[in-house]
Design a protein around this nucleic acid. Structure first.
Lengths: 336, 336
DNA sequence: CTGAAAGCGCTAACAA
DNA sequence: TTGTTAGCGCTTTCAG
């Protein structure tokens, strides 16, 4: 069913139909006729065809490293909430942590003529930057700060520092960290920086051996904790780059009969569900993922609307959520 | 930049350009010229325009109730993995558990002329069925079985039954269940059916009071457990409709000093990360979410390719994962 | 307010 | 293999 065919059925001209769907001027009579015909035929104009003339797709490309990561999912939810309200649709690519696919997807979005792109970044190579610079639609980066681009990011360093300080204030003398790849500037490097900075300010010497590198999984956190405790000098407090890693570390401690928080304190970052039901519950810094997604979408839409290319950077702050793993109380009450 | 402009720059005809991007016949010379021009201009054909003539969008609409639910995210990952490989893109709508939005999205996809739709179903109203019947592209439903449509679903009843039987065999005399809304035929009704069926076969009388209804959240699970234990006859084993609910219930038990598994056994369903690090770790039935997503995508693509409309139903079975909450050992080893 | 007609950027049928 | 020409389904002038 196309517009001509439908126009014939409705007994009006093609233009009238087009106007009906584009809030143009139209007499009540014709509106009625068209509405009745829609009822009958279920006709709806093809958006693709519409876009060829329009140059507007109402499509936003979103690139995600790993959908089943709680933080990514939350960001995406935020993006989706805002976009939907504005009538934009979300073209989603899950790269499964394959950096090449990020670049491919960017190219794809150029072809698809999306109105804008939101990129949940992890690791940025020169290739990324090259492709990003070639994009002629607005791009917003979430979770990372990349010079020259609009970004929504979290205060990773601040969160890591605050948590480390918390543990030191509670008597931690030998802090260790389970970090993630330093190629990831936010979850990786920035959080280690915060850790170091806290040590620095507390007059504790930072030794490279006090950092273990882990993946973003429970198992990897478990293994990293094991390595940490197999060293001659055992840590008495551990900052983990994510709550999932912390949950894995807690699992190891339970198995190895290392008491938390008495023998070792533990912190995660992100405020994932898993940290709340882990045993003991894990102190963390809440990062505002959903808000980040919403702000990214807002920023994108306003860039699209005003056709400007002003670079904006927004940093979202954290909240400390103290739980049992640093001697806090278990926070049972309602929470979301 | 459009095809004519680009053709001029490349020094070839528009058709040559079109052929280049549609693996038609083309001499090496022209290919070279075109490639060089692409290098210079970054030209890429507009897919939207392409689709108006093509009638193929290479777009699949995916409707999800809640992206930040681990099970939904896993299904979507599976879908994405298969679709990407075949060059299809994923138009994602997160309905945030708003059933009306499912219907709206279906309409949206009709307008957008997607090649097919995958619907992660929860609750189906008559309106759903009406709209679904009007879709003229293939639709695959995941997680629910709806008469007349192709579905990928899980053996919810079997999983619930097996877990309940497990607890009864381990000495459970007063089984209770924390279920979710019975409007949800799979996570809700089917799992209660399995529970009942196990009771039946074990000669235990099923009383309505032994089922509490909860949301899909930790807090809601916590509250439901509290209600269960405020009754005169306390349960000695509880089947929870999801692992998240079970984790919430475990939280309550810990707080109320009810020992798991000694005072009460606990099971969840789904094999979510949260159940593994909860304390104690929670026995569950693994449902193959990612596989479900992959199979749904495969089923959709083969329907699209063969232009058939044969209805197919695939049921994926479960695996029991026994953990501490029913007296099993904690399963630490590598797992994904 | 309305319809005819000329686009939008691309593909596909056709003759060369 | 090529270029020409007619579509694809919709929007947007432009007279009326």
């Amino acid at each position: 069913m196309n517009i001509s065919e439908f126009a014939k059925i409705a007994g009006v001209s093609r233009s009238a139909v087009s106007r009906y769907f584009n809030d143009g001027y139209l007499s009540e009579d014709k509106k009625k006729q068209i509405e009745e015909a829609i009822e009958k035929t279920g006709y709806a104009p093809s958006l693709a065809a519409r876009n060829t003339s329009n140059r507007v797709t109402k499509l936003v490309g979103v690139i995600i490293p790993k959908l089943s990561s709680e933080s990514c999912a939350r960001v995406t939810e935020g993006i989706s909430a805002v976009l939907d309200k504005e009538g934009y649709k979300l073209l989603l690519v899950n790269t499964a942590n394959d950096h090449r696919r990020e670049v491919e997807s960017l190219e794809l979005f150029r072809k698809n003529r999306v109105d804008g792109v939101i990129l949940l970044g992890t690791v940025f190579t020169d290739l990324h930057k090259a492709v990003l610079n070639k994009m002629h639609v607005p791009v917003i980066i979430v979770g990372q700060q990349l010079k020259g681009f609009s970004c929504i990011c979290h205060n990773d360093t601040g969160a890591a520092k605050a948590l480390t300080k918390l543990m030191i204030e509670k008597g931690g003398k030998r802090p260790a960290m389970i970090a993630v790849t330093q190629d990831d500037l936010s979850a990786g490097k920035a959080r280690v920086d915060g850790f170091k900075s806290a040590l620095d300010e507390s007059g504790i010497k930072f030794g490279e051996k006090s950092v273990e590198i882990s993946d973003f999984t429970i198992d990897s956190g478990y293994m990293a904790a094991k390595r940490l405790f197999s060293r001659p000098l055992k840590p008495d407090c551990i900052l983990c780059a994510t709550d999932t890693i912390a949950a894995g570390a807690a699992l190891y401690c339970r198995e190895a009969n290392i008491k938390i928080p008495d023998d070792v304190m533990l912190c995660g970052i992100g405020c994932a569900k898993i940290g709340r039901t882990a045993y003991p519950s894990i102190t963390t810094a809440r990062l505002h993922y959903k808000t980040a997604g919403m702000e990214a979408a807002n920023m994108l839409l306003s860039t699209v609307k005003h056709r400007d290319s002003i670079q904006r950077v927004m940093e979202l702050d954290y909240d400390i959520v103290e739980r049992e793993s640093t001697g806090g109380t278990s926070d049972i009450g309602i929470w979301e």
